[in-house]
Design a protein around this nucleic acid. Structure first.
Lengths: 131, 131
DNA sequence: ATAAATTAATACTTACAGGTATTATATTGT
DNA sequence: ACAATATAATACCTGTAAGTATTAATTTAT
């Protein structure tokens, strides 16, 4: 499982845009490149626009462009915009509380993969894909 | 997100059983200890029994006991019994194909956390909780 | 002005994980 | 034998993520 399908889509869209530096991307062109159901893609683009990752312009020669430099867009922020990142931070066993002094049985075992995941998404930006 | 709620429950049940070595656990007693909806817990116990982790005995003094030594029960196996582990192995971006010679943009970035996760669950058994 | 081409808003539908209810089956103490 | 106490099987309900449909708003070429 790992991340939701919507997170997958959001990452797919933005990584594609970051890697193909065209001046602008239309929903149509993104639909043709990425394998995402068209109407869902369009709605997601509006969401990503509202979240401030991209700017939309309507009308005949409209489309989407990055609203900010891609050096400032972290994967954690993208994922967090479509699902709750908090659910990754919490206890593996889903315990409401998992206190430091008396953590759940799996706590220390889970730390390593969890940190590897969080660190990766929190320290990697879209620009890092170009390196 | 990471793992499904059902996986969480399955882990919670079996880790609890591993850590509290009573001769037998009734659904009732597990319900009182773990915070899992009762009927769902009972169904899950039957599933875990069918999967061969535990043996169930019915009737007046029935309950559940481990069917195998806990040294042989890996977390990967538990998770895999209630959801598809394959979904963790696959491409982060959910691409149907993500070929080695031309992997997706996030491929190498994702490798580290993914391997950390898979290695942990594939090399850790319930018995390791007792160490 | 008008039509074409684009995104936006909103509401609806679907699929599935998670949760519930009911009835059946097995075991054991009396 | 019978009642009590377990688990098993099966069907149903529900909430939410994912996907679809419809209509509105905006821009631009002619």
């Amino acid at each position: 499982m790992f991340i939701s399908k919507t997170s997958e889509y959001a990452l797919r869209i933005l990584t594609y845009m970051a890697l193909n530096n065209e001046t602008q991307f239309s929903a149509q062109s993104l639909y043709e490149e990425l394998e995402i159901p068209k109407r869902y893609l369009m709605r997601l683009l509006t969401d990503l626009s509202k979240s401030g990752f991209i700017n939309a312009t309507r009308g005949r020669s409209g489309g989407y462009v990055f609203a900010r430099p891609i050096e400032t867009i972290y994967f954690s922020e993208i994922i967090n915009s479509v699902e709750d990142l908090q659910s990754f931070e919490g206890c593996v066993l889903g315990n409401s509380v998992c206190p430091v002094d008396k953590p759940c049985a799996l706590h220390h075992i889970w730390e390593k993969p969890k940190q590897a995941f969080l660190e990766t998404i929190k320290t990697t930006t879209l620009a890092d894909l170009l390196l």
